[in-house]
Amino acid sequence: MKTVNQRAWFLVLPVLFLVAFNALIPMMTVVNYSVQETFGDNLFFWEGLGWYEQILTSDRFHAALGRQFLFTGLILVIEVPLGIIIALSMPRQGFWVPVCLVLMALPMLIPWNVVGAMWNIFTLPDIGLLGYFLNHTLGINYDMTQDPLAAWITIITMDVWHWTSLVVLLAYAGLVSIPDAYYQAAKIDGASNWAVFRFIQLPKMKNVLTIAILLRFMDSFNIYTEPFVLTGGGPGNSTTLLSIDLVKMALGQFDLGPAAAMSLIYFAITLGVSWLFYTLMTKDDLN
């Protein structure tokens, strides 16, 4: 008879500790706050699901969530096709390949708060290069501290500038991994450029694009630093995205209970949408 050796569990322990300390325990403190009313002097009162109810029915949360989806939706709609187009037009071999790759990687190497500050200064109406040009040379009234539309255009443009490269690099990696034989087959069939894209390049890029969209969804849905530095959520509340609203609630108003409940709802939405998207995209491959 074979004796079962339980010592293998020791191999799992390091991971268990790591996950416990960097994810589970911090998250449990948030759960803890989310079901209690917190006062100074470490006084806690049980609230049950009250904060969740309050958040889910509050207009403020709905508005922030709506802005968040609008922001994420817009940048996905712009960055994914744009990234694919840029990747398609990049050279596949020769001297210009590393040049293009480095140029593409540059925006992603800049720290997030610097990106925010850069675009803030860049678009200032009186001293910013773009702001001055628009206002004083073209005569367009452009001031993102006054005009919500201008603020949105700036925020979207900034994100497109900062993150389209990620889509480009992933799409490019997918493109260069397509064997020449596929293009030859298409040539022999006399397939058009569109058909080559639709029936060879796009299907072959599907996996990397799934990852690209997933990463861009998660990052943009959780975005904080850049819009905080750029607009601080204004003018008014017009660019107050979920994370900005959350920080206002947690650190500005010190409403720890509602903020904790909102964090968990926020987390659940990010996780749920990512899971749904990934499941839909990979369901073909599984069966």
Binding site: A181, Q184, A185, K187, I188, I200, P203
Partner: peptide
């Protein structure tokens, strides 16, 4: 290529 009306089968299994 297209006008020559030929077919090519590769070592790798190339299908759409």
């Amino acid at each position: 290529t297209q006008k020559r009306n030929i077919s090519l089968v590769h070592q790798f299994f190339i299908n759409y």
